[in-house]
């Protein structure tokens, strides 16, 4: 069975993140259906947890985190429900949604946020279908390279992260230096 619980994180450029400011922004996204093709449900505030998920926009299909894990704030897109499409399309879609959420956040004047495109964290939260090992890496590497190239252009370099106890994770050095808008325009 193919895994679909993909996560994509783009890191915020240097600068302090005031997590409490995310709470009203995400509530407003729910109210105004800012992500029009997703059912957005609620906001979970974990700003009190060090190196935690930060503030989470809970959806039915996906969650959107302003995540502060490893003390590196960033937008983490997390797909929860099945994706209706092939493997490559599923990965591309996760990249696309993460970038679109970044673009929405960058447009929020109350936040003063900007995201870098030179580095992407990709994870699969499915130890059954994507255990953190060489076989999974071999399976995912071409698709991740293709997705990275499609959005960011340059030839990426990939680095598998963590141990088998942790979810399968890959750090992608995209080689890009452009903006989120550039990445979305390219794709």
């Amino acid at each position: 069975m193919q895994a679909t619980k993909f996560q994509v994180k783009l890191y915020a450029r240097a600068g302090a993140i005031e997590l409490e400011k995310l709470v009203p922004v995400f509530h407003e996204w729910i109210r105004n259906k800012k992500i029009s093709d997703e059912l957005l449900i609620d906001v979970a505030d974990y700003a009190h947890v060090p190196q935690g998920p930060g503030v989470v926009l809970i959806g039915h299909q996906s969650d959107y985190y302003l995540d502060v894990a490893d003390d590196r704030p960033g937008l983490l897109y997390s797909r929860k429900r099945g994706f209706d499409g092939d493997f490559q399309a599923g990965i591309d879609d996760a990249f696309q949604r993460a970038l679109e959420a970044c673009e929405l956040l960058e447009a929020e004047s109350s936040l003063d946020l900007e995201f870098a495109t030179d580095e992407v964290l990709f994870r699969v939260q499915d130890r059954l279908n994507a255990p953190n090992g060489d076989a999974t890496y071999a399976e995912y590497k071409p698709a991740l390279e293709q997705a990275s190239a499609a959005f960011f252009g340059a030839a990426p370099s990939l680095e598998r992260l963590g141990t088998e106890r942790e979810p399968f994770a890959v750090r992608i050095h995209t080689g890009a230096s452009g903006s989120v808008a550039d990445a979305l325009a390219k794709h």
Binding site: K5, A44, V49, G52, P53, V56, Q125, D126, R127, P167
Partner: peptide
Amino acid sequence: SELAEENSDSI
């Protein structure tokens, strides 16, 4: 912890 990550919101 695995379940928190895969089925919940990591908390």
